[in-house]
Simulated assay, not measured.
Amino acid sequence: MIVLASASATRRRILEDAGVDFEIDPADVDETAYKTPEARRDPAALGVTLAQAKALDVSRRRPEDWVIGSDQILAFDGGLVSKARSMEEARGRLEAMRGREHVLWSAVALARAGRIVWSDREPATMTMRHFSDAFLDAYLAAEGEGLLASVGCYRIEGRGAQLFARVEGAQATIMGMPLWPLLEALRTNGALPS
């Protein structure tokens, strides 16, 4: 059995759309414990560390299953960005990123029998356009507090697409999971037919 160690609706949809049969069993990992000042200096490695921790947490409970852990880190302006806690914070985040570039590092890990079998990470470089304050007001009103579930305060698969001038990276990576490397790892390890 393949298990997704996440309650993320987006990650669930990515796997469902790819035709992967799986169960959901969310990991119980304190992410803040991993986000030390030293770890924050390497967002790509931090994403892999968190994905591995999530996969291992569930794999220890389900040793016979193939467990997928995933995480996404947003690197911007020399630091890491966490999810906004309010609509005011979301507005400030989008204003700060307007006309600028940020990188989403999506990481994924596969565990079985309480050990990591494979892991990978992929970047997506996102360049926001110079949108107007009026556009931002309309966007925030239309999207509402659902934006707070995304670290970037946007859903690229929806209205959030209008925030960008240029995007470099796979859609699934932008949404939070490097899908094609994961599918290959699942096939290589016999969890999916080759």
Rank of each mutant, 00 (worst) to 15 (best):
I2P: 02
E143A: 08
L50V: 13
E31G: 06
T10Y: 10
L4D: 04
T173W: 03
T173A: 01
A109K: 08
E184A: 15
E122Y: 01
L182Q: 06
D120G: 02
G176H: 01
W180V: 13
A96L: 08
R166H: 14
M177V: 14
S6G: 01
D137F: 06
D21C: 11
E64G: 02
G160W: 10
P193N: 14
V117S: 00
G19Q: 06
T127R: 07
G190I: 11
E88A: 15
A51I: 11
G160D: 13
G47M: 03
P123A: 09
A165C: 05
A96M: 08
A51W: 05
G146T: 07
G92C: 12
P43A: 14
I156T: 04
M97P: 06
L183F: 08
E89A: 14
A75S: 13
G169H: 03
L179H: 01
E31A: 11
M87H: 03
S119Y: 04
A45G: 05
D28S: 14
G92P: 12
I174P: 00
S119A: 09
V81S: 06
Q52R: 15
A165M: 06
V117N: 02
R155S: 08
G47P: 08
G78M: 07
R40F: 08
L56T: 02
Q72A: 05
S6K: 05
F131E: 01
L110C: 09
G78V: 09
D57Q: 07
M128N: 13
G19W: 07
A111P: 05
G19A: 07
L163A: 04
W180G: 04
I68K: 09
S106E: 08
R100I: 07
G114F: 03
D30Y: 10
